[in-house]
Nucleic acid binder design. Structure first.
Length: 432
DNA sequence: GTAGGGTTAG
């Protein structure tokens, strides 16, 4: 390498580090091109491309790349990749990519596996998985060895697409199948992602199918996969299959964790088998698996649904003894349960407690309680609650006001508090 | 050998 080229490289490197040096670069390049006659090393262009690209000057970066031959240099995938990398960072740069690819053909640059990888990851990042798949197919056709990471990346992007990729040949399952034919060996994470999407799309039986595929590939599905599939079949109401799955994972020597138990208990509760749910709760504790908030909420909800309020209250104190604090959801479940069983007084107490504890969210049961009180002629009590809600900035819905006004309809005039409440309620409704 | 992917309700 010539001393001159080293000097130019130094000069350019220095300029790149100097702020606002854009104007100084073209004259130097002109000089190298027209006055000097050394073979310019490619890495000088790589640095320039990165520099322009990182400054958002995509066109200039592309110009540098296209003009490389004028500098007595044969461009390779090295400069192409550096250009692709910067262009692929932003949508604006991405638009120039097709042009660059055509130009690189003219320049006789053979795309390398790494070039494809850059393009595919960019397309996946921008949510254009369809194009990523097309490029993947090109790679396969051209006889490239595709890195497993690329398959996983595309699969994972497919799974993250907002619009479900659904069934058929163009879905996740179709992709998985066709990629397996060209040598892709999905790992547990790949399978888990596919299962997750299927369950999310409420296709529990397809998820079960994938679980069987894992087994067919002589792999042992792990507890996460089992848990998701279990959840999937339960959502589809396939409770027999759920039982089979639970037995199966035990036979395989997998240890259910709190997620697994929660899903299973939820399934039992959905079958109205609260007793079964409680049994499993005992069993998991015995096995050393601590129930969490979700475990309790699921069972509490089932107990309340069947009006087993005493048992629910018992479980409530049990959970706090176990160090699991009730959350908003827990309170809502209990409130609904109490109200549903007609225990308005207790529901009132709980409602006040919730407001005191600053669990200050709007809850439709509040309105039901207020209406319920009004219907029983306990309008003063209802007004107390409304006031308490106001203190916590929780506004009753119009339904509550209607009930209150109705309760006063036999009287000559509404109390002032009701008027102001009504007015501010109207304002809020108008504003939203 | 590792991490990582998973649970109620709305």
């Amino acid at each position: 390498m010539s001393t001159t080229s080293i000097a130019y490289h130094f000069l350019i490197k220095t300029l790149i580090r100097t702020p606002l040096s854009f104007d100084h670069i073209p004259p130097i390049l002109d000089r190298i091109e027209l006055v000097e006659n050394f073979e310019t090393p490619e890495y000088i262009f790589v640095e320039l491309i990165r520099f322009y690209g990182c400054s958002g000057r995509f066109e200039e970066a592309v110009d540098v790349f296209c003009n490389i031959p004028s500098f007595r240099c044969v461009p390779s995938a090295l400069s192409l990749n550096s250009l692709l990398l910067v262009l692929c960072r932003r949508n604006q740069g991405l638009k120039l990519v097709p042009c660059v690819l055509m130009k690189s053909r003219v320049l006789n640059i053979r795309l390398e596996e790494s070039s494809f990888e850059i393009l595919i990851s960019a397309l996946c990042r921008f949510g254009k998985v369809g194009y990523a798949v097309e490029i993947l197919n090109c790679m396969i056709c051209d006889g490239f060895d595709v890195d497993m990471r690329i398959f996983s990346l595309i699969l994972s992007s497919m799974c993250e697409q907002k619009k479900g990729f659904g069934s058929g040949d163009f879905g996740v399952l179709g992709f998985l199948e066709s990629m397996r034919k060209v040598g892709f060996c999905p790992g547990m994470i790949d399978y888990a992602k596919v299962i997750k999407v299927l369950v999310k799309e409420r296709r529990g039986l397809d998820a079960l199918d994938v679980l069987n595929q894992i087994k067919a590939a002589r792999m042992k599905p792990d507890i996460v996969c089992y848990t998701m599939v279990l959840n999937g079949v339960i959502m589809e109401g396939e409770y027999d299959k759920a039982d089979e799955l639970f037995d199966e994972l035990l036979v395989l020597g997998l240890v259910p964790d709190v997620y697994t138990y929660n899903v299973y208990i939820n399934g039992l509760c959905k079958q109205n088998n609260v007793k079964g749910g409680l049994d499993v709760l005992l069993r998991m504790e015995k096995m050393g698996c601590k129930p969490n908030l979700i475990t309790y909420n699921v069972i509490l909800k089932a107990l309340c649904k069947f009006g087993k309020l005493d048992q629910a209250k018992e479980l409530l104190s049990e959970m706090s003894l176990n160090g699991v604090g009730a959350d908003l959801q827990t309170h809502r479940i209990m409130l609904d349960g109490l109200f549903g069983k007609g225990e308005i007084d207790e529901a009132c107490v709980l409602m006040e407690e919730m407001l005191d504890k600053c669990l200050c969210f709007y809850c439709s049961t509040y309105d039901e309680i207020i209406s319920g009180l009004c219907q029983r002629g306990l309008v003063c009590k209802a007004l107390d609650l409304v006031e308490k809600m106001a203190c916590k900035n929780v506004a009753p819905r119009p339904k509550s006001w209607e009930a209150i006004v109705l309760a006063f309809s036999n009287e000559l005039s509404l109390p002032e508090a009701v008027w102001t409440g009504l007015v501010s309620s109207a304002k809020t409704q108008g504003g939203t």
